[in-house]
Design a protein around this nucleic acid. Structure first.
Lengths: 342, 342
DNA sequence: ATACGTTGTGAAAACCTTTTCGGCACGAAG
DNA sequence: CTTCGTGCCGAAAAGGTTTTCACAACGTAT
């Protein structure tokens, strides 16, 4: 009660407006929606009445009639993870304060819960769905027979005919190495995370490709897979140094790993970037920018990905259906942890 | 098109079910909703038909009739900030996969955009609103006259009659200090962030209160206010040490600051926790758990806050209206950065 | 004066579900 | 045979909006 501005019974309806303006609801509707066939003076009277009653049309009734609700569902699988959020922001942004509102659902990586949410959303007659995976590997598509367009973001659908949007991890690995080479580095190691992540594999592919083009080998001989943690970054770096591997640059598979790498380098008395340059991945602001020195990092443009996902979805809703997986480029953000050798 | 299971024209409706079951739509409705006055055998036939057509009732039509939509709006002011997200998760959780769906809106701290979103949500006839502030200071209430219950979370409304949920920052400061004292520490400093944050002030109050009870003074004589950054944690710690302040514990106003503190302590050759114990604030997993040593930290239970917000909102929607600001307790998460002095 | 086009307005249908209430059929009681 | 009750079912209204189509009024051309 405390928050109810007016204890009045119900929201004002179009007929209230029509009555106040002295016209029929049909005319009122046309006046408010900018339809022709309404005398200017009548329209003004209606608009004034609507203003006075602070009328706002009932979207339910409108959606019921139009067969379109102007709502979409966004199903994420790890809200706590930091990947869903920028995507969500991008999508929210692209839909705009415009005509589309977003239902947010967190499935927590549980297929049952996901299905449940899909059902609920369809029951609310959403016009489309965006599915954001928990990790970038391909995931099973939603149950077949969903009667609205679906766009998969971050994690592509296993069905190649579905519309999916993913980051170019191969390219991300490549630009990191190209930057290091451009800095004059030649003995480059790659410490990354869980090898069961396709993204880790893809980045390695990009790394090896870029090195190969430059006629270089990977320092240490092999990609160092581990976990996506600072501890692993430290451990792998120590290992590398203990083995006496000659290294003047390390590309880390995540910013967390990079923090560990920098830490271990300092511990061993190596200067960053003078002795060893370091690149992270993800461009997680709070980690990358606050490191000592601030970390150069590969940004996978998640917000952009979310925006594109939203655009593809509205296109599909409007009948301009696309199909297949679209790969979006990464972007290098340079900070102080890389610099020309000298 | 690719994602459309059936290119069929429209979703199946109750009359489709009724026709297939050979009954009227009234009977079909009653059968599906567990109403009495339906013969068991008839009910079975209807349920079977609904199953076969994979019927799901149109929530719009239902909401139109019932005057309740089973939706709520969640307006956040900083999605990128890490405070909205746990609250959002808690709320999503409390509403459950149950009957309530959540519209998510990001106002980006812009009052105009916020108002716009409120209007849009009201037009969609949400049953209630949760407003999550960007920072924990009191904020202006929504425009008056909102015809549904509103709950403010994290940032309370400036109107004390509104329903608000906030963390107990005073208590958070207090339990941090009490823990340090229990560890045998006596020379405790407090390095925190932006003094224009009420939360920073409140924690300081808790700190001074706990110290006072124990008959202690703040090491360094005064609370060190600065910014919520690692750099400030480092800088303030260096300052403290340069001044020759005798210190055996530092309570940091955030985990980021705490990371800087630990960093500077190491740099100065002090051991953590043997020489100096450190406590962070926020319990931001990725920072606190990955620090060396892992940081003891005060957790403000944001997810719980979100859950309670959701509960208060449904209570208000169901007519059990409360009023006023509710303060929820913090919780200390101990890790290795604090230990009994020895 | 009649015929015709123009312009503005309103009645009514449609969207889909829930609920109320009247009615039908059937067995039992009078 | 009539009356009553009981158990099931269906017709219809309600909820708020948009759109179509008919109709009224009025001015213009014949």
């Amino acid at each position: 009660m405390a928050t109810n501005g007016s204890p009045s019974s119900r929201a004002t309806t179009l007929s209230d407006v029509a009555r106040l303006a002295g016209v029929s609801i049909a005319t009122a509707s046309k006046a408010l929606n900018g339809r022709t066939q309404v005398k200017a003076e009548t329209r003004a009277r209606v608009l004034d009445a609507a203003e006075r009653l602070s009328f706002s049309p009932n979207a339910l009734a409108r959606g019921l009639l139009a067969g379109r609700t102007g709502t979409v569902g966004l199903i994420t699988s790890d809200l706590d993870g930091r990947f869903s959020i920028p995507i969500l922001m991008g999508a929210e942004d692209a839909f705009g304060s415009g005509r589309v509102s977003v239902f947010l659902c967190d499935a927590r990586g549980d297929a049952i819960r996901e299905q449940h949410h899909v059902r609920a959303l369809l029951s609310r007659r959403v016009d489309g769905l965006i599915v954001v995976g928990a990790r970038p590997d391909p995931r099973p598509p939603l149950e077949p027979g969903v009667p609205v367009p679906v766009v998969y973001a971050y994690a592509p659908s296993q069905d190649p005919k579905d519309v999916s949007l993913v980051s170019d991890n191969v390219g991300g690995g490549r630009i990191a190495i190209e930057h290091l080479i451009a800095c004059g580095r030649r003995r480059i190691a790659h410490i990354t995370g869980d090898p069961t992540y396709g993204a880790a594999q893809d980045r390695s592919v990009g790394v090896l490709d870029a090195l190969g083009r430059a006629g270089l080998e990977l320092a240490g001989g092999t990609v160092l897979y581990g976990t996506w943690s600072e501890a692993w970054g430290r451990g792998a770096t120590r290992l590398l140094l203990q083995q006496g591997t000659d290294v003047d640059a390390i590309f880390a598979g995540s910013d967390q790993i990079a923090r560990g790498v920098v830490d271990a380098l300092h511990e061993a008395g190596r200067r960053v970037p003078e002795d060893v340059a370091v690149i992270g991945f993800d461009n997680w602001e709070v980690l990358a920018a606050n490191a000592r020195p601030p970390l150069t990092s590969v940004d996978i443009n998640l917000e952009h990905l979310g925006r594109v996902a939203a655009q593809r979805l509205v296109a599909a809703i409007d009948g301009h259906a696309a199909s297949g997986t679209e790969v979006l480029p990464c972007r290098l953000v340079t900070r102080s942890s890389t610099a020309p050798i000298g």
